[in-house]
Design a binder for these strands. Structure first.
Length: 311
DNA sequence: CCGCGTCAAGTTCAT
DNA sequence: ATGAACTTGACGCGG
């Protein structure tokens, strides 16, 4: 290794992306319908429109030279609901595979983030069953694209129900019962109210899952731990095995004047510069979560580039 | 055509 | 007790 490349490796490179809604594309990325209108033919029409829109999204993300993109969970409407009995992985096997080929050709790493209704540790068996079905859908979607195991499905730990140790035991139990093809996609993320980075790390290490460190959530709800971000980040990085791909983090800033935990329009430069310090020497994929979407991701990338931290 | 009330799902917290 | 917020606005009725 030359001195130059050794120096390059040591600085820690960052790649960037954003979630779900490219504001620079004219039409909606995900169309849906009301449950009462969800006939098979309507669902097929929507799926076809959504896959076409996703195709355009991939081109757009690549054109911006970003590497990460989070796919909207609504791409297959009512995917885990009984109303959608379509064998969509079979019906759309060819277009799905083509989307995956395109993503890989463009060098994109994909991810998904199921909604708040996915609660693996609920005391209600029905809620858990619905959550497992929802996770299965997300994993099936990425599988249908043929994406490697580094394209992830990010979830939070779940609820607390007034007894966190019991809630965590239920999480462990539900996790153990997940199908392998679902579990291999999952990543645990700290949230802004219930489970701190420390707690998410404990769970991730216990369950042998990767952990996404969300710096903004950590700021809003740091939990009892006084560990500095840099230390938590290094611990999170260790939860990612080679097959899981480059460790990922989420980055966002508080919306000025709004409730704590609300994502801001863009990200605050000073905070990002702190993060550049905290992450020095680590290669990371950074999912920027901001209302300005790709504009915020591009801005962060520019700041990283100026610091010699891109790619 | 446009405005605006409503939309599958769970859980928590603020009001 | 009710509703907003959460990964994300869009659907679709009524005028």
């Amino acid at each position: 290794m030359t001195p130059a490349s050794a120096a390059t490796a040591a600085v820690g490179k960052l790649r960037f992306g954003f979630a779900c809604i490219p504001l620079g594309l004219p039409q909606p990325v995900v169309r849906t319908c009301r449950l009462e209108n969800a006939t098979p033919s309507r669902l097929r029409e929507l799926i076809e429109a959504n896959l076409a829109a996703l195709d355009a999204c991939l081109d757009y993300v690549a054109r911006l030279n970003l590497e990460l993109f989070r796919i909207n969970s609504g791409v297959i409407p009512f995917a885990s609901h009984p109303v959608n009995g379509l064998p969509w992985t079979r019906l759309y096997a060819a277009p799905l595979a083509a989307l995956g080929r395109k993503a890989r050709r463009l060098g994109l790493r994909l991810s998904m983030h199921p909604g708040q209704f996915t609660v693996l540790n609920s005391p209600s068996p029905d809620v858990v069953a619905a959550s497992v079905a929802e996770l299965k859908y997300h994993a099936d979607f990425l599988d249908a694209l043929g994406m490697a195991q580094d394209s992830k499905v990010v979830i939070h730990l779940g609820g607390v129900y007034g007894d966190k140790p019991a809630a965590l035991r239920r999480l462990d139990g539900a996790w153990a019962r997940l199908p392998r093809d679902v579990r291999r996609r999952l990543v645990l993320e700290n949230d802004e109210r219930l489970y701190s980075a420390q707690e998410a790390l404990d769970a991730a290490e216990r369950l042998d899952a990767p952990m996404v460190f969300d710096r903004f959530h950590h700021r809003v709800y740091g939990g009892p731990s006084g560990a500095p971000v840099a230390a938590l980040l290094r611990r999170a990085v260790k939860t990612w095995r080679r097959r899981d791909g480059r460790p990922k983090v989420h980055f966002s800033s508080q919306a000025a004047g709004e409730k704590a935990g609300t994502h801001g329009e863009t990200i605050v430069k000073g905070e990002f510069e702190e993060f550049l310090e905290e992450s020095r020497g680590i290669d990371l994929d950074v999912m920027v979560e901001a209302r300005a979407k790709e504009a915020a991701a591009l801005e962060a990338r520019d700041w990283a580039r100026q610091a010699g931290r891109t790619k």
